[in-house]
Design a protein around this nucleic acid. Structure first.
Lengths: 208, 208
DNA sequence: TTGTAAATGTTATAACATAACATTATACCA
DNA sequence: TGGTATAATGTTATGTTATAACATTTACAA
């Protein structure tokens, strides 16, 4: 929200790069998790096991992931962490596993959708992830630790990779266009679909 | 007077006003319907009865309307009657209440959800309405007859009124910010939430 | 230790959207 | 005029995303 004039020239030719296919993503994820812990510590909120698992799942890649996919991975034991030992709270009822097609409960698995949605809500409230309305999916925040920000997203329709933009110039243009009409901004949603540089081989990149 | 009234100030490029509470909305709707007919005639597509009904429902106001609300209005006799009813459970026609809570068929009513979604798809394909991803709702296109456009929306969180922006300056800023990153735009989604001028007499928005 | 707030579990359902196939309407032409 | 191809709509079923409501467990500190 705070627009600061850069004391140093923002390099017009070297904006933050779009995530590249071969980049060291383990490092992305590890950094994100580390920063997330710091953010939570600073805010006095608790990055519990399930929240951390969901965050890790979101950070598996730069492709947004849906809530029910997160749920499936959690219940499949996904991620590199051991599953919760809280299995005693599972179906100890002794009944046969009902194969209800709408079985939302964790009869055979572990978690119900609520668990995921609660974790997602927590992560969003703490600025650790964003929701992409055009995809009904979630992605890790690329600007952890910065002020709560209104972000823009570039979504590649080919590989799914999504980059967070956070362009001050764009925010200025937006603010001006909107204020002209007497409107006061609370929230913004900017999601741009298209082809990312990695998926467009003919694209000439100034530096690589 | 404490508030300056800029209504007299006519800038050279005066932006289109935000829809005002007391405006002659019947005229908005009538014009939209007329233009829609012209658009369909020009394109050789057919604005059938149900499509027209859905379009009329969408144009009831400048507040986006959900698909199931459209459905409910259609099945309640359409037109200008208020819905005031849950869209679910439309089955019973004098018969015993069905046990199936997911009764989506139009046994007692007229239409099933598919009918509405098909009409909405047609209307979107023909540029007559837009979908608002942040609301899962639909609104009439304010720029009928113009080229297929990527629009921006201002959504008042207080009254729900939504205005279509279509700012060239904003599109330029967007294009520049995106192209800098080597991205090629296919589609854009810009939905700005906030307080519209009609809802902001002395409003001071809290930080959230 | 124990009270309490936070977190999670559990069940159910709301809300939004589409797949798949059947039937009806429309247009166009021989 | 009637046949027939296509468009439109009807119908049934289900997929997908998200939340309400209440029960139980856990963490933490007084």
């Amino acid at each position: 929200m705070t627009e600061r004039t850069p004391s140093r020239r923002t390099t017009a030719t070297a904006p933050p790069a779009f995530p590249k296919p071969g980049h060291n993503h383990a490092r992305c994820a590890a950094e994100a998790l580390g920063k997330a812990e710091a953010v939570c510590a600073a805010r006095g909120t608790r990055l519990t096991e399930i929240r951390r698992q969901v965050l890790e799942t979101v950070w598996q890649s730069h492709v947004p992931v849906g809530a029910y996919e997160i749920l499936a991975q959690l219940n499949a034991g996904g991620g590199d962490r051991p599953p919760s030992q809280n299995s005693r709270a599972l179906t100890a009822r002794g009944g046969p596993p009902s194969q209800n097609s709408r079985a939302l409960t964790a009869r055979g698995g572990r978690h119900a959708p609520m668990a995921v949605y609660r974790a997602l809500e927590f992560l969003m409230d703490n600025g650790l992830i964003h929701r992409l309305a055009s995809l009904n999916a979630y992605i890790g925040c690329a600007h952890l630790g910065e002020d709560p920000h209104a972000a823009q997203f570039l979504i590649c329709r080919r590989c799914g990779t999504t980059a967070e933009l956070k362009s001050a110039a764009l925010n200025r243009a937006l603010d001006q266009a909107v204020t002209e009409r007497g409107f006061t901004i609370d929230s913004q949603l900017v999601e741009i679909g298209g082809i990312c540089p990695n998926c467009r081989p003919n694209h000439r990149r100034p530096k690589s």
